[in-house]
Design a protein around this nucleic acid. Sequence first.
DNA 1: ATAACACTTGAACGCTTTTTCAAGTGTTCA
DNA 2: TGAACACTTGAAAAAGCGTTCAAGTGTTAT
Lengths: 113, 113
Amino acid sequence: MSEKEMRGGAEEVRDRLPDEQTICDLAELFKMFGDPTRAKILGCLQVRDLCVGELAEILDMSLSAVSHQLRVLRGAKLVRRSKEGKEARYALDDDHVIKIMEYGLTHVREDRQ
Amino acid sequence: MSEKEMRGGAEEVRDRLPDEQTICDLAELFKMFGDPTRAKILGCLQVRDLCVGELAEILDMSLSAVSHQLRVLRGAKLVRRSKEGKEARYALDDDHVIKIMEYGLTHVREDRQ
DNA sequence: ATAACACTTGAACGCTTTTTCAAGTGTTCA
DNA sequence: TGAACACTTGAAAAAGCGTTCAAGTGTTAT
């Protein structure tokens, strides 16, 4: 039984939705891909593991900006860091990343036909 | 040939990236899923087509807030509107939406194990 | 020990986004 | 024609985000 009466069939829709926390986690995940800088970083790391300086050079951005975004991506468990001497090497931490981006790319490209 | 000399192999990574416009389009797409309200709306519309008032009721939000987000989603061509008398009925405009969300959900749920 | 290198961090700034609020449009019904 | 309904819109307030700047950490080389 739901808290309030709703007009015809509306609560049926609500009951079929994933719960609040799941939706928010989902949104958090997609938000990671929702910024060009982060999308580029994830794209680069699909080619190979890279350290911060290399990423900064490739993206033509400051070390700091890249480092901040890597931190965000690390918080979302999408990338992983391994220290090698004074370098910090980053890698994708998740197989899904590639699939999700591929799927998005397919969509974007189909939209252009 | 690239504009500048880069340290070992970095330009090779850059050359393998999708072009700027594609990355930005991709980020724009994922940004749509990157907000809980929009994610919920898209989730609801996967169950069935709905009008603005129903969505507002299900999400427990104002008509205005929902309408604004539907506008954004319409701009991204993820939902479609059809007027029926005084109602505005919204539907998913894209098959990819379901797949993309499903994929994201799989990821989110696996992350919890 | 000192300097150079490769980041990381926190605070601040400007920009964008989301929600609210109030007013406006278009349709239906009496 | 007027009132009710179902949105839509624009502007403004509130919140959130991304980049920069300056300072800080830890590692390596001299």
